[in-house]
Structures are given as C-alpha cells and as structure tokens.
C-alpha cells in the first residue's frame, strides 16, 4: 500500500509534466491538424533557458519559470511564423516533415552551439522530502504538481472565458466560418502556439529541477509520449490532454514498479494502440463519420 502510494505520487509528478506538454500538442493539432514534432524541443529550450537564467542571471525559481515561459512562447510563435505558416495550404505530410525538420534543427543547433553533453540543472530549491505515513513526497514534487495545476486552471480559464480563447475554439471548429465573423486565423494560431509553448517551457524548467539533468535531445522521448497522452485523452480536447498526461505518467511508473522498467515505453505504446483500436477518438474526443 505504501509503495503503491509512493508510485502514485511519482507517477503524478511525471504525469503533470506530460500533461503540460500534451496540452500544447492537443491545442495545435486541434487548430491546424499538425503533429508539432518540434514541441518537445520547445520544452528543451525552456529547460536550457532556465539553466542560463538561474546560473548567469541569478534568477530564482519563479523568475526562471516565468522567463522560460516567455522565451518558449516567443520561439513557438517564431517557428510557426517561419516554418509552418508558408505550408498552411500544402499537403499535411509536407507540414509534418517540416515539423520534423524544425525538431532536428533545434536539437542539432543546440548541440552545435552548446555541446551535446548533459549538464546538471542548478538546484535553486534545496530538495526536502516530507513523509506522511511512510510515503515520501519532495518539495519539488509538490511544486511541480501545484504549478502544473495552476497553469492548467489558468489555461482552461483563457480558453473558456477570454475573447481570444473563444476565437481559438471557433477556428478549431471551422476556420472559414471563423474568418467570416471577423476572426483573424493568423493571430489565433500564433496565440495558440504562444500558449502551448509557454506550458512546454514551464515543463522544461520543472523537469530540470526534478531530474537535475538536461541535454539537447531531452525533448524527443517525452515529446512523443506527451503526444501519445494527447491521443489517449482525445486529440483536440484540453481536459483530455491533462487526464491523458497523468494516465501515461502513472502507467509508466506503475510498469516500473512491478519490475518491468525495460518495457515501460512498450507499455505506453501498447496502451496507445489498444486505445486507438477500441476508442479511436480517445477518452474525451468526438468521433466524426464521413458523410456520403
């Protein structure tokens, strides 16, 4: 029971990182139907910015987190403007290849500029572990869970309550109709990238603190898993992405806990395939059938 609780806590911490990333995937996919392969690399950029902000600008955790969110936002918007916007009306496979190209570019560009080796993330917060009934939870874990939840609530508020959020939902449903009622899709798409990337940037800083190690390729695998989380939750659905992220995190730590850690990635993909076959629209998605 204690180990199970412990795994739950570890799983939720990891899961909240996946959830933050998955939100970016799901929003971008919902609006321009693109698997933004470079999203995991934005998370890497966020982690690297946090590293420099803390080490050289002597920022505290909150300063590093917020500035990383801003920097990640800017990178996301810039990438969309330079690489994806020209391809908006091209075959989707071309846009996907471009996204892969951007991902390669960021990974190798960072390796080229700063070296490919892993480095220690500065520990701005001294890790303390609290025990409740034998179950340990560290202050970093609490911080990750708390920050993620705040960000998710904030995101939900922006999407549901603000004009821009409503415009986002309108463009996701029907870009042409949205344009007819005076919404500029370019602005909305930029805003979507800004939001999604900010969450990824925050996730990057937090994972740096949690795992204490960052490198230019750190975004690859979590990126793919977060996309899986978005699909499991139902692509395009914001609550789905959050729930999917937590589920994937729990699944991973759960498989590890029963001694099959070598198979934890396989378990994630197996769940993905089963999910797609049984419930193709995901947990929260809507299924549409083509009309004849």
């Amino acid at each position: 029971m204690q180990t199970m609780m412990q795994q739950m806590i570890n799983g939720l911490s990891l899961g909240s990182i996946y959830a933050l990333l998955a939100l970016g995937y799901t929003m971008v996919y919902g609006i321009i139907k693109l698997i933004n392969f470079a999203h995991g690399d934005i998370y890497m950029l966020g982690a690297f910015w946090g590293y420099y902000a803390i080490n050289y600008l002597h920022f505290g955790f909150v300063g590093a987190l917020l500035s990383a969110m801003v920097m990640a936002s800017l990178s996301g918007v810039l990438i969309e403007y330079l690489a994806y916007r020209p391809l908006r009306n091209s075959p989707r496979i071309a846009a996907l290849i471009t996204a892969i190209g951007v991902s390669f570019f960021l990974e190798n560009g960072m390796s080229f500029l700063f070296g490919a080796n892993a480095r220690n993330f500065p520990q701005v917060i001294t890790t303390k572990t609290y025990y409740f009934f034998g179950v340990g939870i560290s202050n970093v874990q609490l911080l990750i869970l708390f920050t993620s939840l705040v960000l998710m609530v904030l995101l939900q508020f922006i999407i549901k309550q603000t004009t821009m959020g409503k415009a986002m939902r309108a463009v996701a449903v029907d870009p042409q109709a949205a344009q007819l009622v005076g919404i500029n899709p370019d602005h909305v798409i930029s805003f979507t990238f800004a939001l999604g990337s900010a969450l990824a940037g925050a996730a990057g800083v937090m994972i740096g603190l949690y795992y204490n190690s960052i490198d230019p390729l750190m975004g690859m695998v979590p990126g793919i898993k977060a996309f899986v989380a978005a699909v499991v939750g139902g692509i395009g659905s914001v609550p789905g992405a959050a729930v999917g992220g937590f589920l994937i995190g729990l699944l991973e730590t759960g498989v590890q806990a029963i001694g099959l850690s070598a198979y934890k990635d396989a378990a994630v993909y197996l769940v993905l395939i089963l999910m797609l076959v049984v419930l193709p629209a995901g947990l929260f998605g809507k299924r549409q059938r083509e009309k004849v």
């Binding site: 690489a83 471009t98 190209g101 951007v102 390669f104 570019f105 990974e107 190798n108 560009g109 390796s111």
Partner: peptide, 15 residues
C-alpha cells in the same frame, strides 16, 4: 554536428 543542422535547414526550406 553542423551536418545535421544544415540537413535540417535544407529539409525545411525544401518543404
């Protein structure tokens, strides 16, 4: 490493 950077850029430009 620059090889992959150039490769990635070429890919993006081509697409």
């Amino acid at each position: 490493t620059l090889r992959m950077v150039i490769y990635a850029l070429a890919l993006i430009l081509l697409m």
